[in-house]
Design a protein around this nucleic acid. Structure first.
Lengths: 344, 344
DNA sequence: CTCATTTATGGAACCGGCTCCATCCAGTTG
DNA sequence: CAACTGGATGGAGCCGGTTCCATAAATGAG
């Protein structure tokens, strides 16, 4: 047992021990041709003897690439974000890229998070989840030639993976209408956050369109906005269910909010689906567990596709400009046990 | 609008433009004292004019630190892993460290994942979640002076955040016994995976201890082992519930498995908790949603504490050896609506 | 056996920062 | 006014790899 040197071996040490030049060691390390078998053997022996491992950081600097994909996500605590990150991780696991996660929970961290990528040499590519970057950042990314793909967020100059939120809202509402409902309420988000893509607003649009198509009048008091918190949604729903003319169905702009609505119903002793139908949006894993009818959007798949697209971009020659792709993933209603015909 | 140079400015460019040396620029960048205000102003002007941003990678190499914490997690797809990662992320978000996520889903990736850290200069510290590193890797980490904290995994030479699984299993089983059950089955994991900490085995131990204390004989056919999949657990539970002497209660070693048991009961038309009590382990978020009684282990908190401990370690002088801490987080039974007195 | 071509190899220069040390200079002191 | 002092500054050298080019060795042709 020889004592380990306190400082790890570097490539020069290997070269010295093998009696060759650093260039040759590098060639062996990177499996380049044009190294005599005998020489290669000597180098490998030295590597083994010195327990040499190349330094990734030095490599990064020299090669000007890091083999890291940065994933930026607001509210990593949300189910849907986690699901998307899972999709990303599943793709990257098969690739030589590592995953750097930037959770920009707090508002103040956002600017910081974007700054991180200024220089662009910290990661080889960027995946922004549910996050619309400001225009100047987009310019900066481009001038840094840092490939970037958006998931669940639109931008004219960046490729993005999206779903048709309007259509999703329409499908959900139509499902309720087809069941015979006419008193249909909507629980959505406040479109306050400038960084957040206004998917809730588009879902509202779909809701209104479906109502219009069925010739149902939109009631102001049936459209409520809160936040993604299920507690807030619960509060809103309680208000809604205490209305003199109580709705027979609620379309919530997300499953989390739908869960809040379900809780509200339980609290008020209103039976679901006999007395109240509830439909959500997302098809988060919990939805299946509690039997929530919902509009399924492929969360995991969106992360997957985003990562795949980014990997493609990384393969391309950075000079032949690829026009921004917009890929739209399908949505569909998944009928479970929280929707039924209205009470008569 | 001046045209941007295709290649980003480097520190030398700034120095040239400001008419100073690189050392001075570096001093300004790092907020060191001993720079004349006039000089500082010139440098800042040049930085602004050239849109200069320091390269993190070059900094990493030079400073020999990356400001990255590597988080290694098997089965990132599991609820509990995600919950722990959330805890980690919440701490790191407040720190100057970034989070690199290594998901080693596939068995073959494990060796790869450990190799990544060989050199240790890719991250400043390591957090291993639910993963027991092989001894030689532990030695390697130490000789690379790479601080490392284990969460949900024990190792004699490494600080770890744990829970008392034996006690947890005991609590769960005792809860059932106190309700009056005597026919109590157990659904756990197969202890096959060498990388995985045998927490399920310890929970079995607690189960057996509680039974023994109550003077209840352990029945071989009541103790079943499968995997973390809820489908597998469902299959096992169906077998269990078809036994001539059907158990009146089931303790599942994880919530995911408990959910499988609940499904099995639903399939067989067995009412919970009237005819069958079910208790899980973990208190995953879904547990609250479906009203599952369970043993709560602080998942989020474990990630939090792990990260905090690691950050402390990073602050220490690497030479004053810190003896491996073992921190044990509390467990408690959370009674919801899947357990009740047995049918009489 | 000599000359022309490949093929292997050594090593300086470079990636882009930081640091330490020598130097310079203004302000004190005697 | 010279010697001394300490703060400000420039820049070579280093962090640990890769790459390119000049050189050396091996191979092939005549």
């Amino acid at each position: 047992m020889e004592s380990l040197p306190k400082t790890p071996a570097k490539i020069g040490d290997v070269a010295a021990r093998a009696g060759v030049g650093v260039g040759t060691v590098s060639r062996v390390l990177n499996g380049r041709a044009n190294v005599r078998p005998l020489t290669r053997a000597k180098v490998l022996e030295a590597i083994e003897a010195l327990q040499y491992r190349p330094s990734p950081v030095a490599r990064n600097l020299s090669l000007r690439r890091t083999h890291v994909i940065g994933v930026v996500v607001p509210f990593f605590t949300s189910h849907s974000a986690v699901e998307r990150v899972r999709g990303v991780a599943s793709v990257l696991a098969q690739s030589p890229y590592d995953l750097m996660l930037f959770d920009i929970e707090a508002e103040e961290r956002r600017e910081h998070a974007f700054r991180i990528f200024d220089r662009g040499d910290r990661s080889d590519g960027l995946l922004l989840l549910s996050l619309v970057p400001p225009d100047d950042e987009v310019d900066r990314l481009r001038s840094a030639r840092l490939p970037c793909v958006l998931v669940d967020a639109p931008h004219p100059n960046l490729p993005s993976i999206l779903i048709d939120d309007v259509r999703g809202g329409e499908l959900a509402t139509s499902h309720l209408i087809e069941l015979g409902h006419r008193l249909i309420a909507f629980v959505g988000d406040k479109p306050s956050d400038p960084f957040r893509f206004a998917s809730s607003r588009d879902r509202t649009l779909g809701y209104e369109r479906a109502l219009a198509q069925a010739g149902i009048e939109r009631r102001e008091e049936y459209v409520r906005e809160g936040t993604q918190s299920h507690l807030v949604a619960r509060g809103i729903a309680i208000d809604l269910l205490r209305l003199p003319q109580r709705p027979t169905a609620v379309f919530a702009a997300s499953d989390v909010q739908a869960l809040g609505v379900l809780e509200a119903a339980r609290i008020l002793g209103i039976r679901v689906p006999e007395e109240l139908s509830v439909i959500g949006f997302d098809d988060v894993e919990v939805a299946a567990l509690v039997g929530l009818t919902t509009v399924r959007q492929p969360l995991f798949e969106s992360g997957r596709r985003g990562a795949e697209l980014l990997l493609e971009l990384l393969g391309e020659n950075p000079d032949d400009r690829i026009e921004p792709v917009i890929e739209q993933l399908p949505v569909e209603v998944v009928i479970r046990s929280t929707t039924a015909a209205p009470p008569r």
